[in-house]
């Protein structure tokens, strides 16, 4: 199961925030990846700014990405503002891409 969760997380790296040009995993937008029952993925995510006009696109992009995996038939993507995103949530790769060092 942990393997599958990791695989989902790895796959989500193909979903790229079109404004920042960094994937949603390295940006730290993915709070939780869960597989509560077989072939069903549950993803808890946030966005950097509430009211970001891209939220629809990114959230549905994540959904399509997970549904594209052969191990998954159902995907439940939930958007949360609690806790709010902070720059500390970015991975080292994300920080490097954004801050250029």
């Amino acid at each position: 199961m942990t393997e599958l969760k990791e695989k989902i997380r790895e796959n989500l790296k193909t979903v790229i925030d079109p404004e920042l040009n960094i994937n949603v995993v390295d940006l730290g937008l993915i709070y939780e990846v869960d597989v509560p029952e077989p072939r069903t993925a549950k993803i808890l995510m946030t966005l950097t700014t509430p009211g970001c006009p891209l939220h629809d696109s990114i959230a549905s992009g994540i959904k399509y990405c997970v549904l594209g995996m052969e191990e998954i038939d159902h995907a439940d993507v939930q958007l949360t503002w609690e806790p709010a995103w902070t720059p500390d949530r970015m991975t080292e790769d994300g920080k490097r891409l954004l801050q250029g060092f």
Partner: peptide
């Protein structure tokens, strides 16, 4: 948003 918002997650889309 018009052209690529439905493609993101399915295939590679251009950055803004």
């Amino acid at each position: 948003t018009h052209k690529y918002s439905k493609e993101i997650g399915k295939k590679k889309v251009p950055a803004l």
